[in-house]
């Protein structure tokens, strides 16, 4: 581990991430009121995904985690993708038919 030993070293690692997250929050809030039409959903959830990625990588330290743990996290996403894609295959194709 690239051991930070002083309190300052700990904060230097995490504070910039927090600033980035707060900036993204402000951006998301502003973008929600912007006239982006159908892109609004993509932008707001895209920002959320970016924030979640930052939290996972830098707060929960997936960036320095072992391959096994990254794989575990990826499994959660992959299986969610199965759930979403096959369920929505039905829901969306039902919608287009009616």
């Amino acid at each position: 581990m690239s051991a930070p030993v002083s309190a300052g070293a700990v904060w230097r690692r995490v504070l910039p991430v927090w600033l980035g997250l707060m900036a993204l929050l402000a951006l998301a809030c502003a973008a929600a009121y912007a006239p982006l039409g159908p892109w609004t959903v993509a932008v707001s959830f895209g920002i959320a995904a970016t924030q979640a990625l930052l939290v996972a990588l830098l707060f929960m330290r997936l960036d320095s985690a072992s391959a096994l743990i990254r794989l575990t996290a990826a499994c959660g996403l992959f299986w969610s993708a199965i759930l979403f894609s096959l369920s929505l295959a039905d829901v969306l194709s039902r919608l287009t038919r009616t």
């Binding site: 299986w79 199965i82 096959l86 295959a89 039905d90 829901v91 194709s93 039902r94 038919r97």
Partner: peptide, 22 residues
């Protein structure tokens, strides 16, 4: 086994396209 659940729902009113995939 996670990709096949829809075969329980062929007569449920599910979209026929989804039924085909399942």
């Amino acid at each position: 086994g996670f990709f096949t659940w829809g075969h329980h729902m062929f007569t449920s009113g599910m979209s026929p396209y989804a039924a085909l995939i399942f």
